[in-house]
Design a protein around this nucleic acid. Sequence first.
DNA 1: TTCTAAGCG
DNA 2: GGTTGCCGCTTAGAAT
Length: 998
Amino acid sequence: MAAIKKGDRIFLVDGSSFVFRAYFQSMNQDRKYNARSDGLPTGAVRLFCVKLLQFIRDGAVGIKPTHLAIIFDKTEDTFRREIYPEYKAHRPDPPDELIPQFPLMREAVRAFGLIPVEQGGFEADDIIAAYACQAADAGAEVLIVSSDKDLMQMVRPGVTFYDFESGIKGKPGYRPERRLDRDGVIEKFGVPPEKVPDVQALIGDPTDNVPGVPGIGIKTASQLINEYGDLESLLARTAEIKQPKRRETLEQNAEAARLSKKLVTLDCNMKVDTPLEDLVVPELDAKHLLGFLKAMEFTAITKRVSDLYEVDASQVEADPRLAPDGSATADLLAGVDPDSDEKPAATASAPAKPKTKKDLDLGADLTPQGLAAQRAATAKSAKIDRAAYTIIDDAAKLERFLERAFDGGVLSIELLTSSPDPMVAEIVGIALAIAPGDAAYVPVGHRAGNDLLSGGGLAPGQLPVRDVIARLAPLLRTKGVMKIGHDLKPDITVLAQHGLDVVSFDDIQLISYVLDAGRESHGLDSLAEAHLGHTRLKHGELIGKGRDRVALDNIDITRAAAYAAEAADVTLRLWRVFKPRLTAERMTTVYETLERPLVPVLSRMERSGIAIDRAMLARLSGDFAQTMARVDDEIAELAGERFNLGSPKQLGDILFGKMQLPGGSKTATGAWSTRANVLEELAEQGHVLPERILEWRQVSKLKSTYTDALPTYVNAQSNRVHTSYALAATTTGRLSSSEPNLQNIPIRREDGRKIRKAFVAPKGHKLVSADYSQIELRLLAEIANVPTLRQAFQDGVDIHAMTASEMFGVPVKDMPSDVRRRAKAINFGIIYGISAFGLANQLAIGRDEAGAYIKKYFERFPGIRDYMDETKAFCRDHGFVATIFGRKMHYPEIKASNPSLRAFNERAAINARLQGSAADIIRRAMIRIQPALDAASLSAKMLLQVHDELVFEVPDGEVEKTLPVVKRVMEEAPLPAVALRVPLQVDARAADNWDEAH
DNA sequence: TTCTAAGCG
DNA sequence: GGTTGCCGCTTAGAAT
């Protein structure tokens, strides 16, 4: 092997921290991917392999390694234990699922053609340090891959520290990847790398049981080391330290500090048995690797490797030693390390092989779960062949196919339309499936060509859309045939434009939502992947990308047929998997009362749309533009230059660079934060520019998102705006609204309210807005069963004033508005799973004060603390929480070991029971509104839902009669399923526009 | 495509 | 293995 030289790029990977990372990341993912069919946990190994492959192929931070060392700890009995028996003594044992994976990681390293490096009596850190020095001396470039900050002391010319991202982006506990050079270490520790052990000696490390000096944190430590040079000088000159307390503790703990420094110091001089030059990255032997991956039953990465290296994975045997029946894995399951020399001779008496799914006698299992598994097996069994679907191009064929659908009683439907917006979409084709593999495509709207000359005419070989719809109508309208789809609402909307209504249907997106909200996504692609192991033809591939993108009605019929019929086929197969799960998991009622009936209701609301006053919005846009220009000028004056006010980066440079204002927090990516609360703080200190920025941002938001954008959503035919509601977008059961989002129309500030005035009723009509008053707090009183709160709602008193009175001992009468405001913030905080930090932020008070408020609150309303503790405990035990109507919301990360992620999930779970129950109540109301209006012969149209509010359009003459009907239906919505002990209150008003009605 | 900020309940 | 930070969403524009 060639000696290490300049130009070599060497990755020194800290195997232990790599393994733990992979493990915790795997625990954040779905559990079902974390074990092999025989029960052997493999999640960490899988992610370990994914990362290794990435390192070998792409490297990291733009560097591709020539040498790759994966270094493991061999034993805990290192020299550190000798000098300090307590070293790492309190470290808990690794989790059970991880233990059998340690030897597998070493197998994985070998499978990639690499050598796992370890050496008795040394930690990985020691070996890494020795390698790093060697390599740097030889002029090579070294990347230390670890999350252990002990290794940061090794940073020097040629050596940088790299830690890849951890956690899940956008969630608490997430850390982006980072690469530290000398400056980076200085930023982190306040001292250069060579002084890091001195600083660590003072602060200690509780996880490794390194004592340090009590009461000294990173700030004090780096300040002291910078002042005195190093630990020994500091300890020699403690007399000079001014703070008596600090001097005393330093003197008392001098020996502990010296010991700590010995424990954390890494040195270059260890003799490593494995020469660094042996660790050159070899040509990858894909077959060998695939043998390992197949033995582990990793599907995705197996496919990736076979694609990348053009090896047919099906021709490769799973490594027999590690495959589920292999002797090595039997040992792993029995807790024996196959690498160990102490392997018992009696391998022959390996434990009985655990039953795999395939071993189960499905025919004998008549439990609902068993039946579900059986159905799943049949749905999977027949192979999906895209080319085998029928194209129906004449009436007789269609007739025969539909007859068979009548006989079968099941019809899966997928519409191909010319636009994703169902309000303008034309039907291009209809795919139908009646049994797995038995699907057909009926083209009706394909165009003859996509060039200008031939464009316009229909392609040959299609049936007239009207005829097809006429023949389809009896099937759609009969209860005798179950119609099945995935996300049926848009299709129902399109069909409704043709005068067709769909009676008796199932929507597998909604079934999936009912069963798996919070733990799986509900898109057709991911469902097909997860439950059928099938990858669907991509929509992007069908219509092309960028410049080559074509309109859907210009797609070739054969290709469209393959795509759409496959969707219908997959949908039908998924229905056979999912439908039995509904009964097996006792979720049928939830699905049939809260989900399915809402589909036609929402479709109808979307089709109704709402009228807006475009002239009013245009005027507002003009006003806002003027304001923005004026503020822009003022800011240019204040800053001394013009810059893009919309760029947080440029603004940060001006505020914290040029103007040297005190910067507060940084964002996740390390940029200065210029969020509203940061700017507000600066404004309070008397700085004018931040205040102007806030004004500009507010106006800019109103203009771009509302006054400019809303008119572009007006439908040319109806002259109204039609939003789209998603039923399965939130974990809690709330709806979401998009294109445009009509659930976030401004109301809180005067400027914004003007936009709400542009939502109007047409002549002769009024808008009626009806909203639940304090519904989530009422549900808190109900679910947590807090007598004081329940009584307050029964008495109809001001709930925030009552809370303030209880907590601060102030009488409700003539209560200062600020006291009430605080109580209100606490009440909302409780709903959100309160933290002292969050409340302090909200009220701009100290954390101690906020903590005291919370304590007081829990004393006054003891049921609330119990509610929170119970919710967390239940969620930990079951992985989900439920609404008062039984809808489940899953939080698999509630057990995450990352404290911030875990706490986040606990708060979410606490909030979910309330938010979700409220969502269920308004869903029940929405489903009942139309029948109630019909019964009263009223013609009001329900237009919008905004979480706790419904908006109707009502003829002037019917307003008086409509208000009480709406109010009654909403207030009685929980009945008869649930009789609340707290009254619900709905306020309803009518006006010419939404602002005044609300 | 990702990040940051801002709108709502 | 290191420490965050009040729940649920969608949209727009800049930066990458």
